[in-house]
C-alpha cells in the first residue's frame, strides 16, 4: 500500500470523511488554546507593548501563506506527472485558503507596523514579496475560474504554478536587492540568537499548530467539495447529451 491509493477519489472521500471533522476539532482546540494563551496570559514586550500579541496571528498566517503555495506546487507537479485528479483539485482547493492567509499576514503586519514603524505600509522586501505573492494567488485563482473544461484548467494552472514559483523566488531576490528592509529577522529559526523570547515561544508554537491543522482540514474539506463538483459537472454534461 502506498500514498497513491488516495489518488482514487472514492478512497480519498472515504478516508477524509472521518478525518476532516477530527482535524477540524483539533484545529479549533489548538487555535483556541494558542490564541487565548497568547492574548490573555503572555506579558507585554518591553519595547513593543501589547502589540507583540499580534505575532500569534501574523507569523502562523505568513508561514501558511508561503507553504500553501509550496503545497500547490507539489500538487501541480503530481498532477502533471501522474495525472491524479485529486491532486489537481487539492491545488485548486488550497489557493483560496492561501490567499486568505496572505491577506491576514498583510493586514496584521500593517496594523502592527503603524505604531511600531510609524507607517501602515513600507516598501520593505518582506512586505513587498507578500504583496507579490498575493498577486500570484489572484492570477492563479482567476485562471482556474476562467477555464470551463476541468482538465484543461488543471493543466494550465499547474503550468502557471510551476512558472510562477520560479518567478516568485526570483522576485524575492530582486526585491531584496531593490530595497533593504525594516523587517526583523526570522521569528523562528534554529539559530537561537534570532528567536523570539521563550515566553512568547510556546503559545506561538501552539498557534502555528492550530493554523497548520486548520489549513489541512480546510484543504481536505475543499478538495472533497471539488471532487463532488467535478462529478456533478460530468453528470450534468451527460444529462445534456442524453
Amino acid at each position: 500500500m502506498s500514498i497513491w491509493r488516495y489518488a482514487n477519489p472514492a478512497k480519498f472521500m472515504a478516508t477524509t470523511e472521518r478525518l476532516v471533522p477530527a482535524l477540524s476539532w483539533l484545529a479549533a482546540v489548538a487555535l483556541a488554546v494558542g490564541l487565548v494563551w497568547g492574548f490573555f496570559f503572555t506579558p507585554d514586550d518591553y519595547r513593543q507593548g501589547s502589540t507583540v500579541k499580534i505575532i500569534y496571528l501574523h507569523v502562523p498566517a505568513a508561514l501558511i501563506a508561503i507553504n500553501a503555495w509550496f503545497m500547490m506546487l507539489a500538487a501541480s507537479l503530481i498532477w502533471l506527472i501522474r495525472r491524479h485528479h485529486v491532486s489537481a483539485l487539492a491545488a485548486k482547493a488550497a489557493a483560496p485558503v492561501g490567499v486568505t492567509m496572505t491577506l491576514i499576514a498583510l493586514v496584521t503586519g500593517a496594523v502592527w507596523g503603524q505604531p511600531m514603524w510609524g507607517t501602515w505600509w513600507a516598501w520593505d522586501p518582506r512586505l513587498t514579496s507578500f504583496l507579490i505573492l498575493f498577486l500570484f494567488y489572484l492570477g492563479y485563482m482567476a485562471l482556474w475560474s476562467a477555464i470551463e473544461d476541468p482538465d484543461t484548467a488543471a493543466d494550465l494552472t499547474s503550468v502557471l504554478c510551476l512558472v510562477g514559483s520560479v518567478f516568485a523566488v526570483l522576485s524575492r531576490y530582486a526585491v531584496n536587492f531593490w530595497n533593504q528592509g525594516l523587517h526583523q529577522g526570522a521569528s523562528l529559526s534554529l539559530d537561537a540568537e534570532e528567536n523570539v523570547a521563550d515566553v512568547f515561544y510556546l503559545p506561538l508554537l501552539v498557534a502555528i499548530g492550530g493554523f497548520v491543522l486548520l489549513f489541512i482540514a480546510l484543504v481536505l474539506q475543499r478538495t472533497r467539495t471539488e471532487i463532488r463538483a467535478r462529478r456533478l459537472h460530468a453528470l450534468r454534461l451527460r444529462e445534456r447529451m442524453a
Binding site: G49, S50, K53, L57, H58, V107, T108, P115
Partner: peptide, 22 residues
C-alpha cells in the same frame, strides 16, 4: 481582559480582522 495599554485599538483590530477572515 488583559490591559492592552495604548495599543489596544491596534491589537483588537488585528485580532478582529484576522478572525473575521478566518
Amino acid at each position: 481582559m488583559p490591559d492592552l495599554g495604548k495599543y489596544a485599538a491596534e491589537v483588537l483590530t488585528a485580532y478582529g480582522v484576522s478572525l473575521a477572515l478566518l
